[in-house]
Design a protein around this nucleic acid. Structure first.
Ligand SMILES: [Mn+2]
Ligand SMILES: [Mn+2]
Ligand SMILES: [Zn+2]
Ligand SMILES: [Zn+2]
Lengths: 139, 139
DNA sequence: AAGAAATTTAGAACGATTCTAAAGACTGCG
DNA sequence: CGCAGTCTTTAGAATCGTTCTAAATTTCTT
């Protein structure tokens, strides 16, 4: 058995360490929720609700800290679709989003079949950073 | 001369009335700032600063009310580019945006030269509402 | 195990936006 | 015009999402 933490998640521990983050219990618990299944879109509040119903409840401040750190480390990407609320996306690859207006649900779609042609050159003195396509839909 | 308000703006008065909004002095003052010259991108705060240096200062609450009403009436469109701040856009036609990351500046670009091909069909039970393209650039 | 450094936490603080309820303005009618 | 009715404005309080503070706890290194 493992030397220090039975039932630990060496995967997430290593992944956090590789990102330059100490694998604290809180960060491991959050990383498990975020990364152990498929891609997800969460808000700080939704992730906090989720982690509270766990063996390792985590304060809301820590959820915010972790999300920002994970984003800065490239483990997450932040998606802005609505004023006043940030979504964090575990899918860091190239893709775009459907945003379902009333409920606030986000759905990925791959960018490799999408062609954006005819974009003008960036304004003088600026370099392209990212192109976000948000397809807003309603029921 | 006009019958009741010398120096009034019949243009804006009529435009507000057509939108189902009473042409109050505050709304006329804001409409003048927003619509009398070319297209603009404003925040509630920036428009408030601007209108305060006018013969008709307007409270911040009224600026928020007016921007939301103008948006609901189709006179403005709301653009979401950064968490925690809403931009209102006097250009309600089809177009997209450059967003200059550090300073928060927005620049329009026309959508008629841009081709977006290969967008997947909207999720089941939803109808397309709008496609937003945000080209994020940095200095 | 001990010390140093990083992290977590509760609660306060913050900035943007909305709400409340009282005062004021606009409109239609006499 | 003058009034009543309705809508609008306003200051200030409240709310909401997020960040900050500073003290307690955990992690890491030796
Ligand atoms: Mn953030
Ligand atoms: Mn709004
Ligand atoms: Zn996504
Ligand atoms: Zn615009």
């Amino acid at each position: 058995m493992g030397s220090t933490m039975p039932g630990a998640s060496p995967d997430f521990t290593a992944r956090l360490r590789a990102a330059g983050l100490r694998p604290t219990r809180q960060r491991v618990a959050l990383a498990r929720l975020l990364f152990e299944s498929g891609h997800r879109h969460v808000t700080a509040e939704s992730l906090h609700v989720e982690v509270k119903s766990t063996q390792m409840p985590v304060s809301l401040a820590t959820v915010y800290n972790a999300l920002n750190q994970f984003r800065d480390a490239g483990l997450l990407r932040e998606v802005v679709v609505a004023p006043g609320r940030s979504y964090f996306d575990t899918n860091t690859g190239h893709h775009h989003h459907f945003f379902v207006e009333p409920d606030g649900a986000l759905h990925d779609f791959p960018s490799d079949k999408v062609t954006i042609a005819g974009l003008p050159a960036p304004p003088k003195g600026t370099r392209l950073s990212r192109v976000d396509v948000i397809v807003r839909v309603r029921r």
